[in-house]
Structure formats: structure tokens, C-alpha cells
Write a protein that binds this DNA or RNA. Sequence first.
DNA 1: CACGATAGGTAGTCTATCGACATATTATGG
DNA 2: CCATAATATGTCGATAGACTACCTATCGTG
Lengths: 113, 113
Amino acid sequence: MPRPSASKAELVPGTLDMLILQTLTVQPLHGYAVAQHIERLSESVLRVEQGSLYPALERLQKKGWVTSKWGESPTGRRARYYTISAAGRKQLGAEITSFDRALLAINRVMRRA
Amino acid sequence: MPRPSASKAELVPGTLDMLILQTLTVQPLHGYAVAQHIERLSESVLRVEQGSLYPALERLQKKGWVTSKWGESPTGRRARYYTISAAGRKQLGAEITSFDRALLAINRVMRRA
DNA sequence: CACGATAGGTAGTCTATCGACATATTATGG
DNA sequence: CCATAATATGTCGATAGACTACCTATCGTG
């Protein structure tokens, strides 16, 4: 049996990068912790699968929005820590602006503005 | 030079079906008019490309959420009119619920709830 | 010792969206 | 009269993001 009330967790496609970048503005974290943070804050409405998480982190790094280095997790395991860059913060701002803009537009169409 | 202020229109992936179904709740429309309606109400923030529109309408029809038949547009051209079905209205409700849920969750993560 | 949680990752697939193209008719401007 | 824009429908191929399913490895607990 799965979990009781959580009617199938899903991401809104295209928002994962924004969620990860936002999470990293607080402090550098390793991937697994980023996923946990998003799931916890969203009260399990958003679930970040490994198959989405690690490709996303690689993507962000390739674009220069985060940097990473090996470290050690609080529990003593090897872990890759990700840090948001200046370009990453700028990108995050742009993504938030564009997302808000799109949401307003959607609400206008759905007549619930 | 493109248009002045409109910083590149884009859909939030996964919302097109919802937008189309919502548009068809008002009255049956042909595809081109659906796209125009969404673009107009969104003040050109959302642009519905033909390459997205017609496959989406086919998709919705295949799932039984809309029906269609040939007719004539107000300007006298041949046009395929789409009508939302009962199952379509039910589906629309489900999509709105799930989208709202996801948005609340995103806002919790972005700390702007 | 088995298992779940922690941690990182890959492979293959699926699906939605997009840009570009193709077709046809009608309206408009020069 | 001709070019072009707008209306209207569609297809094709590429791309990107997310998912399932798998793999390794360590650590703690029952």
C-alpha cells in the first residue's frame, strides 16, 4: 500500500530547475538533500525522482548556474555538494519572473485572476 | 526586430490541454479560434503554435474529451469544430485541481505562499 | 542478516512542445 | 493585377524533460 492521501505526486514540467536553484540559495547541498528539501517543503506533493534529479543537476552545472565538489554528508557519506553561482541567481530571477508571468496569463484564460 | 515588449511567448508544458478544454466550455470552436482565444485572453503571453495545437486537439479527441465535426467558420471557410464532452468537463476539473495543488506546493518551496 | 535509508548514477523510453514546412482560400494594399 | 497577410488545417522531425527501472555502495536497525 502506498501513502494514504497523496494522490500521485508530480512536477509541473519545466519547474524543476527553478526549484533546485531556489533550494540552493539557502545553502550548498548535495543532490539527495535537495530532493528531500523540495519534497518536505511541498508536503510530498512534489516528488523528485533520481532519474530527474541527477540529469537536472548536470544540466545546471553545464550551463554554469551551479558548481559542485565532493564532500561529506552530515551522516559521513561521500556526497557531491552543489553551490549556486552568480549566473545561477540571475537565472533563477529570470525563471521566477517568466513563471509568474505565465501563471498570470493562465489565470486570465481560466478566468480566475 | 520582433515585437517590442513581449519577451518570448511560451506555454507552461502540460497546461495546453487544460487551456483548450477551458476554452471549449464557453462554446464549440474550431482549432484556429481556440488558439486565438488563448492568445488574446493571455495578452499574447501564451502563444499556441500549430505544431502544438492540432496534435493536442487530436489527443483530446482520442481520449474522448472532445468531439469534432466539420462546419463553416464565421468568415465562410471550412473549419473543424470541437465540442467538450461530459468526460472532458470532468477531466478539466481534475486537471485544475491537480494544477492548483502543484502550484501551492511550488509556492511553499519558493516561500511565497 | 535482511532491509530501509542514504548517496550517486545510467539507460531507455515516452510524451509534449516546437520550428518548419505544405496546402488552400479569402481579404487587402500598392 | 499581383503580392502578401490572414484564416484554416495539418504533418514531420528534432528536442527536451521527466519517468521507470536498473546499478553500485555504505550505514543503521531490528
